[in-house]
């Protein structure tokens, strides 16, 4: 464990908690893409099946359980409890265009052709594009609530910190996982224009509104 991975995990946890609290406190999921949250729940489900097969550490197991629990709770709040506030008209990204290619790629490019490894690879590839429905929804509505931008900032920051973690681990431990690194680079690049808007607008107290 190194500081970059730890702050990355905490940034990820912060994003998940911010979103869950935003929906719970405001009793509304306006501006939130339910499709992205479904994809994240799928990412955690397919990645953390090793909860049943191997124990790494209390930290590892507890964080995985928290991530899975919060992501399912978020999906429940969006599609059940606060369904009336779900903005389905703007959450129209065709997720099958993500899941099918990612599913195919995870069969073609993986470290080992075993069920757990293919599911892990699927979750890594899927996570790199899972935010697209949310970014697409913001581009359609032309704006985002400030709390939603903080959620996206921490979510994007987490994988950027993981990239530094992988540089650190390559240099000090000789650890290198090409699949995770390539997917992580793609994932972080997708946030770049959002990061620019976040720094130039939200951090200056303005509302995030895209040129419609």
């Amino acid at each position: 464990m190194n500081i970059f991975r730890l702050t990355g995990d905490l940034s990820h946890l912060a994003a998940i908690i911010i979103l869950l609290l935003k929906i719970w406190k405001t009793r509304s999921c306006a501006g939130i893409s339910g499709k992205s949250q479904l994809l994240f729940a799928l990412v955690f489900t397919t990645r953390y099946l090793d909860l049943f097969t191997s124990f790494i550490s209390l930290y590892n197991t507890s964080m995985k359980l928290i991530y899975v629990a919060c992501s399912y709770a978020t999906v429940y709040l969006i599609y059940m409890k606060f369904k009336a506030t779900y903005d389905g008209n703007h959450d129209t990204f065709r997720v099958e265009f993500l899941v099918v290619p990612v599913g195919g790629l995870s069969f073609l490019v993986n470290h080992d052709f075993s069920p757990l490894e293919i599911l892990w690879t699927f979750s890594i590839y899927l996570e790199s594009v899972a935010i697209l429905p949310q970014l697409f929804m913001i581009s359609k509505t032309g704006e985002a609530e400030t709390i939603t931008t903080h959620y996206l900032f921490f979510l994007g920051l987490y994988r950027a910190l993981y990239l530094i973690n992988w540089i650190w681990r390559y240099y000090f431990e000789g650890f290198f996982d090409l699949i995770a690194v390539v997917a992580g680079v793609v994932q972080t690049i997708l946030y770049c224009d959002f990061f620019y808007l976040y720094v130039t607008k939200v951090l200056k107290g303005k509302k995030l509104s895209l040129p419609a």
Partner: peptide, 10 residues
């Protein structure tokens, strides 16, 4: 083959 490193990352 690529020896499978234990997946210790989240």
């Amino acid at each position: 083959a690529f020896e499978l490193m234990e997946k210790d990352e989240l």
